[in-house]
């Protein structure tokens, strides 16, 4: 901290002063025109609430939403990764049909706004599939079964399972196009010479991919994949539009019941920020570690 202060130049001081003045000025203007009564004190209660009946603390709206967001992000990213790897490989194989199919998928998803994509997936795919596979009935059965505890830990309230699954599927399909592009770039970054060397040893195409191309691609692909995962966490707020009860959805709920618009949205913004920022710090650290290990 001392170091930081010593390193400040007069330019930094001026810049900071200008920013502070601007913020103060905007704040004052809003105070004047905006007739708003701040009620920050109600927010903590919507994170954690004391349950009188059971006599213990339980998660309330915002924290419930956050937990759902984390769950959905985890499952969706696993699914997106699996799909994305297939699409990425599909875009680099020799077979023209496979390549065209993979390309079409990617181009469609990249050139249609996410909200539209999500509605289309939701109404045409997940809603129908959920009915077709009778996932509702299945989830209800689980909720009454013996292992209900474990399922609830993994997926939250089982009554919301169908909605959560469609959220996961929709998000994964959407993100898989981007993962696919990252994977393709990774595969293509492995030079032609590597493939030719593998080929001239007589390795089959599958072995060439498995032992030569993919291991090298993986190392190059991890940093952009980590970024994509953070994007996925942020993008997950879109699925509130299809009534998946994640953080954004819960915030809308909170706002409509308490009218604490600013407090609620600022809190939610903070929650997202902390989550994503921690992730990016974590990934950066892992990346640095990975690099030093590679050198050793």
């Amino acid at each position: 901290m001392r170091d930081l202060i010593r390193r400040l130049t007069w330019l930094d001081v001026v810049l900071l002063a200008v920013v502070a003045a601007a913020v103060a000025w905007v704040g004052l203007r809003i105070q004047g025109t905006l007739n708003y009564e701040w009620r920050w004190e109600i927010i903590p209660n919507y994170l954690l609430r004391f349950d009188e009946q059971n006599g213990r603390w339980v998660a309330n709206l915002l924290l419930q939403g956050l937990v759902t967001t984390v769950r959905i992000a985890l499952y969706a990213s696993v699914l997106a990764l699996a799909l994305g790897v297939m699409i990425g490989i599909g875009r680099t194989v020799k077979n023209l049909t496979v390549r065209m199919l993979a390309r079409t998928y990617v181009e469609l998803l990249r050139n249609i706004p996410p909200v539209v994509v999500i509605f289309i997936f939701f109404f045409f795919l997940s809603e129908q599939l959920i009915v077709a596979f009778n996932i509702e009935g299945w989830a209800r059965g689980i909720a009454q079964g013996d292992s209900a505890g474990a399922w609830t830990f993994l997926f939250g309230d089982m009554r919301l399972f169908p909605s959560m699954i469609s959220g996961v599927v929709v998000l994964a399909l959407f993100e898989s196009a981007f993962v696919g592009e990252i994977v393709r770039a990774g595969i293509e970054s492995v030079g032609r010479g590597q493939r030719e060397a593998a080929g001239s040893l007589g390795l089959s195409r599958v072995d060439e991919l498995r032992f030569v191309v993919l291991p090298q691609a993986t190392r190059r692909v991890l940093p952009p994949l980590a970024n994509q995962f953070i994007s996925l966490v942020k993008d997950s707020s879109i699925i509130s539009l299809i009534s998946v009860q994640e953080l954004t959805y819960k915030t809308v709920e909170l706002v409509s019941s308490t009218r604490a618009i600013f407090e609620a949205w600022i809190t939610t913004a903070l929650l997202y920020f902390v989550l994503c920022f921690c992730l990016s710090l974590l990934f950066r650290r892992l990346e640095r570690q990975g690099r030093t290990e590679m050198r050793a």
Partner: peptide
């Protein structure tokens, strides 16, 4: 090959 093409 000219460029060795060893698997790094």
């Amino acid at each position: 090959f000219q460029q060795f093409n060893l698997f790094p």
